[in-house]
Amino acid sequence: MTTLTHLDILEAEGIHIIREAVAELERPVLLFSGGKDSVVMLHLAAKAFWPGRLPFPLLHVDTGHNFPEVLAYRDAVVERLGLRLVVARVQDYIDDGRLLERTDGTRNPLQTQPLLDAIADHRFDAVFGGGRRDEEKARAKERVVSLRDEFGQWDPRNQRPELWNLYNPRHRPGEHVRVFPLSNWTELDVWHYIAREQIDLPGLYYAHDRDVFLRDGMWLAVSEVSPPRPTERVETRRVRYRTVGDMSCTGAVESEASSVEDVLIEVAATRVTERGATRADDRITEAAMEDRKKEGYF
């Protein structure tokens, strides 16, 4: 007799959501950053359409501050699966003056406009995102299929009720839906699944030696886009990343976890959320994520 584990159930739910959006909408796209959540989401999408290719392209919003090894990983995946990749570049917007570099140097909040423009230019109507409800309080209120108006805005006070497993992705011209197949996954579920499915990740998720410096209680990598200030001392530490965002605002954690099994033990024992530990962009205010999401952020 077949019994399903909770990972089997989460996997099946994710595949069901992806197939449902593709069946009901015209022009889907999957947001792919090379981060672990988008990698797992892509893995589910590949399963959903086996033995065929994905019937939609990937979209990456490149801030220009990405880790080079993550970009290399992204390109290798696209090559291996025979996919089409659309890249929206924050740098292009800064170069021609549509966006201004922020005084704090972070580009994470600047991603929204290139994202929304890419959605409009390509007339994407379903945008798959790897967001999870356990990540953050505003995300806990997010629907699996979530409507965005013609300005890409999320209206958290006026969301469609979501009943049973009957999703409603209908929308008017100019609007689109964001679809979150990993809504019900936790960070630990993602790692258990990566272990079970033996999914290949960018190497920086595992312990490695890196030149880092301490800023606001986080270990930041030394790079062109995140140079240490004269008062900040650079040292080589054994670190890994729990999330992968911009080099300028994503902190590393000290870790000896060099395999997926080690990471599982570490994540199960941790007492700090992944965003709290490693993302400067979420620390700005109590409602930082809610504000960005309302404007059309991932």
Partner: peptide
Amino acid sequence: VQLTLRPQSAALD
């Protein structure tokens, strides 16, 4: 049935 899976020439294999 959510959709028909008929890859034809788009099959990975």
